[in-house]
């Protein structure tokens, strides 16, 4: 078929090259502008925090006899870090987030594996149940935990858990666990089941195939689940307020500190602690990006 014949078969006229090029440019321009508004909002929030902090530091420096020294020692972050109450809150945050992240990964590995590999009765129901902590309003999670500890056998331990440090960990774990399960399910979905089947044919029991072949492959996913659960736990506030209370030097974590400082009108300390949390979250995100695979939609 020559060119003339081909022209005969083509129905309608294509748009001109210029019009297509213009349309493509407009398309990408629209995508960029709409997307950029959100990205700018996120960046602007953080920049505003930092700018506020710098302004307060300069003000403190102006009033001091030695401005340079005051910039370093009297800026709100240093003041906040020197406060024993905030030191306790940082310490409790690190410990409780780490413990709740470990607990989250511990339940996420078996649940994620079962849901990824097996089609069993009630699987969809289980899937829906695991979404509850994600979609439930955080305050409701806290309230439900509080109510739960009024019933046996939980009420036997209520005295040593409710409004105590274990409540902090339990409240964080209740929400972070669901995120870890989602991550681990995605991890196991990405691991070729053929590897496991080959291991079975080589003489492995299910547990051996899991331990020798599947778990080592899931290492990166476990790290991602851990960091994600850790970050969720750090940001947890609603359930903590209801289930663990906001007692200084007892059940106070960083998010509670922000709330308490705001309540007493100490905006500087609230912003300073917020920036400490931003720094912790950034570290976690970097770790997650370094260890986690990008193809898990996280």
């Amino acid at each position: 078929m020559n060119a003339a014949d081909a022209a005969q078969y083509e129905l309608g006229r294509p748009r001109s090259a210029r019009s297509i090029a213009l349309s493509d440019t407009c398309f990408y321009l629209a995508l960029t502008i709409i997307g950029a508004t959100y990205v700018l909002l996120v960046i602007a929030m953080l920049v505003a925090d930092a700018a506020y902090m710098i302004r307060q530091s300069i003000r403190a420096a102006d009033q001091a006899a030695d401005p340079t020294w005051a910039m370093l020692t009297a800026n709100p972050i240093v003041v906040a870090l020197a406060d024993p109450k905030i030191q306790y809150s940082i310490w409790l945050s690190m410990i409780s987030c780490t413990l709740s992240a470990i607990l989250s990964v511990a339940v996420a590995v078996p649940l994620g594996y079962l849901m990824s590999r097996h089609r069993f009765f009630g699987r969809r129901l289980l899937d829906a149940i695991l979404d509850i902590p994600i979609v439930l309003p955080p305050l409701v999670v806290g309230l439900s935990l509080l109510i739960l500890f009024q019933f046996p056998p939980f009420n036997w331990f209520a005295r040593s858990i409710v409004y105590q440090v274990p409540a902090v960990i339990l409240a964080q774990f209740a929400v972070a666990g669901a995120f870890a399960v989602r991550t681990m399910k995605a991890t196991f979905d990405h691991i070729d089941p053929r590897c496991e089947q080959v291991a079975l044919s080589l003489g492995c029991s299910r547990a051996q195939a899991f331990g020798w072949v599947v778990l080592p492959e899931a290492g990166r996913g476990m790290m991602t689940a851990f960091t994600l659960a850790w970050a969720r736990s750090l940001g947890e506030f609603g359930p903590l307020l209801i289930f663990a209370g906001a007692t200084r030097m007892k059940t106070e974590v960083l998010s509670t500190t922000v709330f308490l400082e705001m309540n007493v009108g100490n905006l500087e300390a609230a912003v300073a602690v917020s920036l400490i949390m931003v720094a912790a979250a950034v570290v976690v995100l970097v770790v997650a990006r370094l260890f986690g695979s990008r193809d898990m939609g996280l």
Binding site: Q197, V198, S201, G203, P216, E217, G219
Partner: peptide, 21 residues
């Protein structure tokens, strides 16, 4: 019988390598 006790050598299409070994 379970696959483990059948004594079959299995080679799948893509080799299914164990990437961490």
């Amino acid at each position: 019988l379970k696959p483990a006790v059948r004594g079959i050598g299995y080679v799948p299409q893509d080799g299914a390598m164990f990437s961490k070994m």
